[in-house]
């Protein structure tokens, strides 16, 4: 589903990604771990076509992103869901309107919007709060809405960048449980996180990064990554 081969990226001469090569199969659940500055967010941004790699090949669902023109990028993104650490919900819109926006953007017929938005909210347990605006929700609830928004267009894979970074441990666990359920329904999930405890307990594939490189991949080594590559809770921003 996703293949990266010798991907390099630098900012003003400072390398952010070095020779990144790995692939994610359909239906996989992958954790991308590593300390701050390891390159996790840069890698997700490149997968999401928010940044361009300097070198290398990136194939997503059979499409080489290097060959995609700016007008094709929105159509690629429609097959992906993205969950942000800061939720990126529009504060002046209600929960329902936030979800409906994602449906409008892809041209969903008006008659379908309500049904699909409510179905997505039901999946994340937020059906009773669809009329509230995000500032009236807790962090965990806001992230649930963000997850619902990322899923409402039924993407083939979901990317999440530190989705529990702003949440308390209990809320974080709830969100990870949600991702697990989503994955069980067939969606490929790739999550960048510091939350080593959750990563360890969920027992899924772990790709560890350090200083822009992949230092271990549990699928290859079938071993836990080195402690240096994974940051324990509370040690990184």
């Amino acid at each position: 589903m996703i293949h990266l081969y010798r991907v390099n990226k630098s900012y003003e001469g400072i390398p952010a990604l070095r020779e990144i090569t790995f692939s994610v199969d359909k239906g996989e659940f992958v954790f991308l771990t590593g300390p701050s500055g390891a390159g996790k967010t840069t890698l997700l941004k490149i997968l999401f076509c928010a940044e361009r790699a300097d070198e290398g090949q990136i194939i997503i669902q059979g499409m080489n992103t290097f060959r995609l023109g700016p007008s094709s990028i929105p159509y690629l993104r429609r097959n992906m869901g993205f969950v942000f650490q800061d939720y990126k919900l529009l504060p002046h819109k209600t929960v329902f309107e936030n979800i409906a926006l994602a449906l409008k953007v892809v041209g969903t017929p008006y008659g379908e919007i309500e049904r699909r938005a409510l179905t997505a909210l039901k999946k994340v347990g937020m059906l009773n709060k669809e009329h509230l605006t995000p500032p009236k929700l807790s962090g965990g609830e806001q992230q649930r809405v963000a997850v619902a928004r990322s899923l409402v267009n039924e993407p083939q894979f979901l990317l999440a960048d530190e989705p529990t970074g702003n949440l308390d441990p209990a809320s974080g666990q709830e969100i990870f449980k949600l991702f697990k359920e989503i994955n069980m329904k067939g969606t490929t999930v790739l999550i960048a996180t510091h939350d080593w405890e959750t990563v360890r307990t969920m027992q899924r594939r772990i790709v560890a990064m350090e200083r822009g490189r992949i230092v271990s991949d549990s699928r290859d080594s079938q071993k836990k990554p080195s402690p240096a590559a994974a940051v324990r809770p509370g040690t990184a921003s």
Partner: peptide, 16 residues
């Protein structure tokens, strides 16, 4: 600006 950026992230075309 926030709304426009978000729309682009979730697959809005330039025309939209």
């Amino acid at each position: 600006g926030q709304e426009i950026e978000l729309m682009q992230w979730i697959g809005a075309t330039r025309w939209f």
